[in-house]
Design a protein around this nucleic acid. Structure first.
Length: 355
DNA sequence: TATCCGTGGAT
DNA sequence: TATCCAAGGAT
């Protein structure tokens, strides 16, 4: 084993983080293996998402659906409701598809190879390598944002991301040991999260600081070099919160693909970058006594949305038939993305407050 | 390769 | 307040 890997593994033994989905190094040494289902579920949830945000969702999912078979047997709507608030909802749609394939076509067993894993929906280069290494002890090159940062610093790779990805992957493959590749991968990610951080890295505590090119000759904070980001345009529209005489709110289901695909919404106008779009009550989906109820702003990855919110009370439930009416009790459990909860809260301030 | 796709916490 | 960014994938 190369010296970097040995030092990294020793550091991981001493300083690894504990997570509900993780098997500790000592457990692994005693022959306890990670459950591929839990590894897969956690890796999907952790894509572009912080550990603290994932923890309660992971616990709720494994409590409700302990096996891939149980998840495959769940309804699509139940899965989307359980995912609501975590973001990137295509992950939830692909999660369900993947569970069905594994449960129904693969005898309930996840593939152990990169190729087999990558063939499944929602599993790309990173996740395939992570599952192969962590759940099956395959010496796969696991490259996430943490590893990109660690490796560009270790080897002083100044090619901007994402062009540097292939170069980084080759370096990671070269230093990945055949013994304990899963612990090595998790150790590299822990190192990036705790020591080799984006700002003010704790190089004095780093187990491989004696072999880091950037630390010797430059400023680690300048790595990785990234391509410049695009600016974020503003779009605007109007949202309409219709309330029935019993206090229920009218909801619709969004189209299955695209932004917030398959999630619930209150009726909205188009979200347009144009400034001359109609965001008045005249744009309402059906006639009612609409009154202005403030506005909300929500930042997506590639645009900022400003919504004028209108509310109407005592709306006859028969007036709209392309959705459903959610009672105050049901509302918090609907598959509502955060932007929709904001819009509803602007019209009904206590809609999502604990009873 | 570039773009689309959420959310919330840290700085 | 503005920006970054966190265990990326699909197209």
């Amino acid at each position: 084993m190369n010296r970097r890997a040995a030092q990294l593994l020793q550091w991981y033994d001493d300083h690894h983080r504990l997570f509900p989905w993780r098997v500790t190094p000592s457990e692994r040494a005693r022959g306890i293996l990670a459950d591929p289902y839990r590894v897969w579920l956690s890796e999907i949830m952790l894509q572009q998402t912080t550990v603290e945000a994932v923890k309660p969702y992971f616990q709720a999912f494994v409590a409700r659906w302990p096996t891939v078979g149980a998840l495959a047997a769940a309804s699509d709507d139940d899965v989307m409701r359980a995912w609501a608030g975590l973001g990137y909802y295509s992950r939830a749609r692909n999660l369900k598809k993947c569970a069905e394939i594994v449960a129904n076509e693969l005898n309930g067993e996840f593939p152990s190879t990169i190729e087999g894993l990558k063939a499944l929906p929602g599993i790309g280069d990173y996740t395939a390598a992570a599952i192969a290494a962590i759940a099956f002890d395959r010496p796969a090159a696991v490259v996430d944002g943490n590893v990109e940062r660690v490796v560009t610093r270790l080897f002083a790779i100044s090619t901007p991301l994402p062009a540097a990805k292939s170069e980084i992957r080759a370096k990671v493959q070269a230093i990945t040991p055949t013994n304990r590749p899963g612990d090595f991968a998790q150790g590299m990610m822990d190192l990036g999260a705790m020591i080799c951080t984006p700002r003010r890295p704790a190089c004095v505590l780093c187990p491989v600081n004696d072999d880091c090119r950037v630390l010797g000759e430059g400023d680690p904070e300048l790595y990785p070099v990234k391509a410049p980001k695009k600016d974020r345009p503003v779009r605007q529209g109007a949202a309409f919160v219709a309330i029935s005489s019993s206090g229920s709110v009218f909801l619709r289901k969004r189209p299955a693909s695209g932004l917030l695909g398959g999630m619930a919404e209150v009726p909205c106008t188009d979200w347009t970058a144009r400034r001359d779009g109609d965001t008045s009550a005249d744009a309402a989906p059906f006639p009612a006594r609409w009154s202005a109820s403030g506005s909300i702003s929500h930042v997506f990855t590639h645009f900022e949305l400003r919504l004028s919110v209108y509310r109407a009370e005592n709306v006859a439930e028969k007036i709209a038939d392309n959705g459903w009416w959610a009672s105050p009790d049901e509302l918090p459990d609907e598959a509502l993305p955060t932007v929709m909860k904001k819009a509803i809260a602007a019209a009904i301030p206590d809609a999502f407050k604990a009873a």
